[in-house]
Structures are given as C-alpha cells and as structure tokens.
Design a protein around this nucleic acid. Sequence first.
RNA 1: GUGGGCGUAGCUCAAUGGCAGAGCACCUGAUUGUGGUUCAGGCGGUUGAGGGUUCGAGCCCCUUCGUCCACCCCA
Length: 516
Amino acid sequence: MPSAQKITALRGMRDVFSAEYARYQAIQARLERHLRLHSYIAIDLPILENTELYLRKSGEDIADRLYEFDFKSRRVALRPEVTASILRAYVERLQDEPLPLRIQYSGPVFRYEKPQQHRYRQFTLTGAELLGADGPRADAEVLHLACSGLEQLGVTDYSLTIGHTALLEEFLNRLGLRKQLVNFLLRNMENLRKRGLKAVLESLETIYPEFQGAALAAESANANDAEQSQRLINVLREMTDSEAHQAVTDFLHSLNIRIAANRDEGEVIERLLRKIREDQQAPKLQLALDFMQRLGDLAGAPADVLPGARALAEEFDLDRDILMSLERTLNCLAEYGESPGRTQLDFGMNRGLHYYTGLIFELHAAAPDGEPIQLAGGGRYDNLVSTLGGSEPTPAAGFAYGIERLDSVLPSDNDRSPEPAVFVIPVAEEDYAAGIGIAADLRAQGIAVEMSIVDRTLRRSLRHADRRGAALVVIIGEDERRQRAAILRDMRSHQERQVGLADLTRIVVERLSEHE
RNA sequence: GUGGGCGUAGCUCAAUGGCAGAGCACCUGAUUGUGGUUCAGGCGGUUGAGGGUUCGAGCCCCUUCGUCCACCCCA
C-alpha cells in the first residue's frame, strides 16, 4: 500500500480524547452552573468576527497574535478572546435589556503564539460579563464570582492578585505625554519592574525611534536646562489641555497678535501646544518613569500596600476616589467571605488586553510541578461599549477562566471514558436482526449498548468486549435463535444463563443495578 | 522574535559508524459457540526531507521542515 504523506494536527492545536474531554466537560458544566446560579445568562457567539473588532481596543500585542485573513474581500479573524464579541453583541442587539446585564459564555479562542506547556493556540474560555454596573459592589461581585468558581471546582490553594490601571493612567494623561508614549508606558508597567529601567528604555527606542532623544535625556535625568522661554512652557505643562489652550489664546490676544485669516485659530494653537509639549517629552518621560517605579514597588498584602498607595496619590494629587473605591471593593469582597489571606494588591500589574480602565485581577494556583500558573483573569473596561459604538457609555467588567489550565491544576481522578454497559454479539448473519432488536430495547431503557459488527469468532468478540470493559454480554446464536432467547453473560462473575427475549431487557436492568 | 531538546513501524521507544529491533495495537492459529493469561505465527519502515563525509550513515557534518521545552507574553 503506498503511504501518502501524513497530515498532522496544526501546531498548538490538540486532539482531546475521551477521558480528557470528559474532564473538560465536567469543569465547564460546573462553572456554567455556578455562573447560572448568580444569574449570569449563557449565550453563544460566533468564533469568527470582523478583524476590526479586535484592532479597535484589544491592543497591539493581541493584534499580531490574531488568526486573521481575507475572505471574499472581508477581513475576518478567529476570536482571541470573547469580551469584545460580548460587547459587540450587546451594542448590536441587547441595548434594550434592563441593566445591569449579566452574561456568561464558554467556547474556544485562538491566539497565534508559540505553544508550550499549558499554552495552546486554541484553548477554551468560560467567562462572565457584568454590563451596566460600576462601583465597588460590581467589582466585588466579579471578583467573588471568579474566586468562588475555583472553590466550586475544588481548587482551594489559589491566590488573587488585584491591580488597578487608573492611577497610572490618570497620572500619564495629566502629564500631557504623547498618546503613543502613554500607551507604551501603560503596556510596559510590568516590564519596568521585571526587567528594569534600561530594558524598557531600550525597547522604547526600538519601537519608537522618534523618542530616542527623550529616552536618552530621561536616562541621564538632567534635561532641565532652563531658559527664559522655558518658563511659559513649564507653566503650560502643568495645565490641562483646555486650560493651556485658553491661556495661549488669551496671551496672543493680549499681545494683539492675529492669526492669518485663512487658518483656523484653534488649530494653530493646538499645533503650537503640541510642539511645545513634544519638546517637553524628555522631562515628562522622566517623571513618568519615576512614578511608575514607585507604583511598581506597591505590591503585597493590601494592609501593607494601601498606606503607600495613599501617600503616592496624595503626593501627586491623584483622584482620591480611585483608592477609596478600591478599598471599598476589598471590604465588600470580605463580606462575601473571601479569606483575605490569599488576596494580594499589585499596582505594578498590567494585562495583555488594553481595554481595561480600572480594577484588573488574576487568579493563580500551583500546577502539579509546583509552578504557579494563571487560571483566570479579568477586570473593568468602562470605555469598551463606547469604543464599539454603543449609544450610551456603559460600564462593564468581567473575567474568564482557562478550562485547560484548570484541568491541569485539578487532581485527575482517573475517571475513565463512559464504557458500554452491554455488548451484543450476534454469532451468525441470521442473528443480527435479533441483536439489533435487543440493542434497541436496551437503549430505550437508557442503557449504553455496543453492537458487534465485525466478523470475528465468538472468542475474539468476547475478548473485545472484555477489553472495552463491558459489564454484560448478550450472545445470540443458532440455539438461541431457535428458542427465541439469548445468552446473558456477566463478565465479572463469569456466569451466564439463557434468557427468553421477552424477559431480557428487564433482567439486564436488574443485573446492571446490582453492578452499581 | 531569542535559546535548547527530540524526529526510527499505527502508538511508546531501543539500536559503538557495520544485517533496523522490542513492547503495545491489529490479524491468524493453538481453542470451528465462550473473555483480560499463555504459546506460535503474520501484517507493518524511503529511520521527517535534501545534500555532504565514508568502503559503509538511523548514528558524524551542513541545510530545511516538523515538534516539544524555556525566555517573552498570557488562559
């Protein structure tokens, strides 16, 4: 026989066989039930979406991990996560639902990454979204839901790490850094701590060569050669956009300077401001990095971290509500009965998806080899509905579990694939009709039946039934055919008896219940 | 993207540079209507692909592809 080229599964894609598949299904079913008991309605959404859905806000890292292609002149992508689809569906079809709206989902997602242990290119998420509610109660519900789901599964030794994107974002926005730079810094918050200032600056220069000067200046940290003209700039730097705009307008007017009539005055001032601010990127970058380093040090038990966070917020005059709200969330979580010992705060954490606007969190537990792996992640994304064209700004938060990861953490209680309870062996061609009838009767009683369809000796058929783990075997041969009966053989006790066809189903049911 | 390991029968893997093997699975028989054991036999290979060194390459060298693992990132 000429052997053709073997076709293998794509890299990072896995075939999931019976025992493993049964475990996944059990995990998923338990989580879905858990979410349902919290009134999260299950919905199912397409796996294929418009590429645009993920480019808008998910972030650049996800964009180049997208399975994305042109199909009939349309850009489509396999979903790398489900939140965007949920909100897309909400904007499209569900905006007339009373809020808050609670939704759950389960299904595969695809990310083109280098596969390795506990990381596949296709994996399964079960997640929940809470739409139209914000504040500590909503955040705490989401956190509690994620944690208690793990407990439902029997994962007891897990840790909850909570971060927050708003402090840094507020600080960076007030600084007036260029949008690109702000995004870069937000993305590299965690890298700053893990790999240090130098590595972050290097990567900044690689990605955005135009900031090279700024990065260098920030590194040498003495970009402040004050000139006279610098004073106005420094004043402007401290202002918000609209304040600065007004100040420049007033200033020009007071000097009786007229902008050329063919150009929009506002636009000219915008440009002027932008120019001034670009010149100021270096010292601002320095400020930003200092702030980020201090923020990154704020990690540990909430009681240890919060005082430092408060002091930092005070020092930079950041919105007090952010931390107060976070504390209330933690208190509320305690009311749910979550043991505070496993909760960590980490202001240096950031996440791969860039739509988060507030609370972010991750759940970790130890894999069998002792290495901690992430089981779930989520957070708050209050702008995503608007980004996707929602008619009203709608706060939202959610999270998702990785089913395969959960399985790797749970003890594999060797539950075997469902075994056929009864194996039916017609000995000769003439016996098949009777065999089919018997099988149908048994199945009508909810009993799993495997029918022998291969030409084999009785000996080999029994051997096969045995290996399959059948509890009972029904044999129909010449004698039985004549007597309108069958042999019922108990594979465990090795005992067999002839049973009339009329009584067979009843007796099989009895025998199986004895086997239980 | 960077670094390492491994590609040999359907599966899991052996084989100092010298006849390509074992276990499992499948099939046949010992036992023609009775099982997980045993015994005998059978099927099964372009050693991932291409090139090089050599009297001789599964083994050494180069290239390439595949795959696993680590970094990175994440579920």
